[in-house]
Nucleic acid binder design. Structure first.
Lengths: 242, 242
DNA sequence: CGGAAATTTGAAATCGCTCAATGATAGTGG
DNA sequence: CCACTATCATTGAGCGATTTCAAATTTCCG
């Protein structure tokens, strides 16, 4: 788990809390906005999108989840789910009863601290994405998004080169970027023409990573808590989870 | 504190953690994006804006803070601050060393749980704001923002009528809405003309709250953890902070 | 191979931006 | 108390990015 030093124990921990695992096909809805909140999910395989639907009928994909992510956690402060969870690829999730998730705060303070820090990290990412959508052009947002996916993929699998398969349709991509599908198409073609990226079907190659970074203009965030200030408080304690 | 039942103890708790309090005038910078993260803040008086600056020179106000809010908490996962904190009015803050804040996770699990839930709530608010900015017109965003401020003010002071003073300049308002100052002006004039709101200098009256809600189109979120599932886990425990 | 879904392209309309100027307001020092 | 100045609010005109509507083409999957 990020931020707290007990790496591989996490999957084991979450699967031990999990009552069952479920599989979904691409485009399946895992949970609908407005549904009762009784559980959260641990994504073990595949990509999932979190979408917010507005009364006007428009939809925004506020987060693209990769394996290792918890799904649906923002909704634990609500009675009815804030977001719709949609499978972007075939996926496997582990279902965690909200009550079990909640109990971690009393039984495993260091796990709780890690979950808190992860929530703060998500806030920073959302702040950056809000700024990106509010203040940059479609092409800049696309560059920023591709880089974000690339950076995240590097942490979940071994990427030698900046090349990966992006399983989103252009409509889903448009939902992420906050533009229309038609414009997503034109924008991707335009970015392609700059020579910064190469598209071969769903396979994306980032030909000029630093060029893309300066285009995207997102501040580069180093999410490490090497900071001495909170490490000592968290590293000590006898409640090491099994 | 929200979500966990020990109301007024919170100010006492945070001021006990606080090493000092500071005052700022309107427009003062409390902390700059990129500064070292050594402390978080408790806002006891006035309004503060959290802004993200992009490399292109553009700025987005990602959050408007009211009294009772913690400031700067997203940055605890970073070495250098994610956001610039700006006083929107004369303010008073209590400075809390990040180490003291962090220690709460070991010493006061229920406070930790409350902080976690607050962070999740902020995620939901950011998700809604991202959707608002990405998918609605300037006038809809303005309606949504005014309602959000109104809803929050109701919880920190006694508002009999939907009328309040909005201390933001139009430039700051534009920073919030993700538009230019010029367009903020035109948009506010336009909203004024609909009869949904009334402007008298900085004083805003919401003449038709439900009309504004349907214009803004934001899902209405009920942030209460009446849910039986996590209450039991949190209410019990012997670590009641003094 | 056939049909549905996804991608691509075109043309016109709209929203918000930019540049530029004018008016109003508030704080300051004489 | 008033003149002075800086900041803030307002308005106009033209431009640009993105949307909308509509159709053509390609890809995917059974």
């Amino acid at each position: 788990m990020e931020f707290v030093p007990f790496e591989a124990a996490e999957l084991e921990l979450f699967t031990s809390l999990s009552s069952e695992s479920r599989h979904f096909r691409r485009h399946d809805v895992i949970r609908q906005q407005g549904d009762d909140v009784r559980e959260v999910y641990f994504l073990s395989e595949g990509w999932v999108g979190s979408c917010v639907d507005f009364a006007t009928g428009s939809r925004q994909m506020v987060k693209v989840h990769l394996p290792g992510d918890m799904l649906g956690t923002p909704s634990v402060v609500l009675d009815s789910a804030a977001e719709t969870l949609i499978a972007l690829t075939p996926i496997t999730i582990h279902v965690i009863p909200a009550s079990a998730y909640s109990r971690l705060f009393m039984s495993a303070p260091r796990v709780a601290a890690a979950m808190f820090l992860t929530a703060q990290k998500e806030r920073v990412l959302l702040m950056d994405r809000l700024t990106s959508v509010a203040r940059t052009t479609a092409m800049q947002r696309l560059a920023a998004f591709l880089l974000h996916v690339y950076d995240r993929l590097k942490t979940v699998e071994n990427l030698d080169e900046p090349m990966f398969e992006l399983p989103l349709s252009q409509e889903e991509l448009a939902d992420v970027l906050g533009i229309t599908p038609v414009h997503a198409n034109r924008t991707f073609a335009q970015l392609d023409n700059t020579g910064l990226v190469d598209r071969r079907g769903r396979w994306i190659t980032l030909l000029n990573v630093s060029g893309l970074r300066s285009l995207g203009a997102v501040p580069d965030r180093r999410f490490e808590c090497t900071a001495d200030w909170h490490a000592p408080a968290l590293w000590q304690g006898e409640d090491r989870p099994t």
